[in-house]
Computed example of a mutant assay.
Amino acid sequence: MYTGQDLTDKVVVVTGGSAGLGEQICYEAAKKGAIVVVCARRINLIGKVKEACEALSGKDAFSFQLDIADPENVETVFEKIKAEVGPIDVLVNNAGFGIFENFMDIDLAIARNMFEVNVLGMMVFTQKVAIQMAERGIGHIINVASMAGKMATAKSTVYSATKFAVLGFSNALRLELKPLGISVTTVNPGPIQTEFFDKADPSGDYLASVDVFVLEPNKLAKEIVYVMGTHKREINRPRIMEGASRLYTLFPHIGDLLAGGILNKK
């Protein structure tokens, strides 16, 4: 079994790999010798990430334009990876987006698209990769969920719903795939200093209000790559929010006070 300390010639596929956390995961995997496959919609960016990965790893990297919400495109990209790169050792499902708005105000077409990207498209890609991994008896699937999937707050109704779905899916999938030699890890970050918030919170007020909790994408990426090839169940960051989420589960009334008070910054 390989580890995140040595990913030499392991094929690591990252969705949403054109920027932010996904981009940093690509770079950290490349530093460990992986053959990185960058997947994202923005074709103008994935080529640059691919070239940077090649410089870091000293070996070929690949980039494929991927619209995770389009099942036909997912099928096409998966077949291209299988034909041009080879079997996938690690899949990082990082693609996703959020909109922070009161539920009564949100456009439900946006809500539907959020589920297609954050949940349904991820499931389509994961099923194809899991079947391939099961045939080889080895593999690692890493799903980037969110602290919003452990502790919901106001103005994150739809986004939290998608991330609760990712967590439920991942926890059941872990049990199904473990006997087949495949690990499943969920990553549950709080706010990260990335362009995610350009869409989720255009005003910038939310990030400013939770500055003490904000994560640096490169540091979280190092932690994610470090657990590749292991049986790590979850990565929860920052730790103070992990503690709050545990309190939320054990003492839901107190959790509601937290979520509706000091953690309600949207």
Rank of each mutant, 00 (worst) to 15 (best):
I106V: 14
L108Q: 11
A109N: 12
A109C: 14
I110G: 09
I110W: 10
I110P: 08
I110Q: 14
R112G: 10
M114V: 05
E116I: 09
E116T: 08
E116A: 13
V117S: 09
V117F: 08
V119T: 10
L120C: 11
M122H: 09
M122Y: 06
M123P: 13
F125K: 13
F125N: 08
Q127D: 09
K128A: 06
V129T: 05
V129E: 03
I131S: 11
I131K: 15
M133N: 00
A134P: 06
G139W: 01
G139C: 03
H140K: 02
I141V: 06
S146M: 07
A148F: 01
A154W: 12
K155I: 12
S156C: 15
S156Y: 13
T157H: 07
T162N: 08
K163E: 03
K163L: 04
F164A: 03
F164G: 01
A165S: 07
A165Y: 02
V166C: 03
G168S: 00
G168K: 03
F169N: 08
A172M: 12
R174C: 07
L175E: 11
E176A: 10
L177K: 01
K178S: 13
L180Y: 06
L180S: 10
G181Y: 00
I182Y: 02
I182G: 04
I182R: 07
S183P: 10
T185F: 01
T185Q: 05
T185N: 03
T186C: 11
V187R: 01
G190K: 02
G190S: 03
P191W: 06
I192F: 05
E195Q: 09
F196T: 07
K199Q: 14
A200Q: 05
P202Q: 07
P202T: 08
S203F: 05
G204A: 04
G204N: 06
L207S: 04
S209F: 11
D211H: 14
D211R: 15
F213D: 14
V214H: 08
L215K: 02
P217A: 11
P217V: 05
N218I: 11
K219T: 15
K219C: 15
K219F: 15
K219A: 15
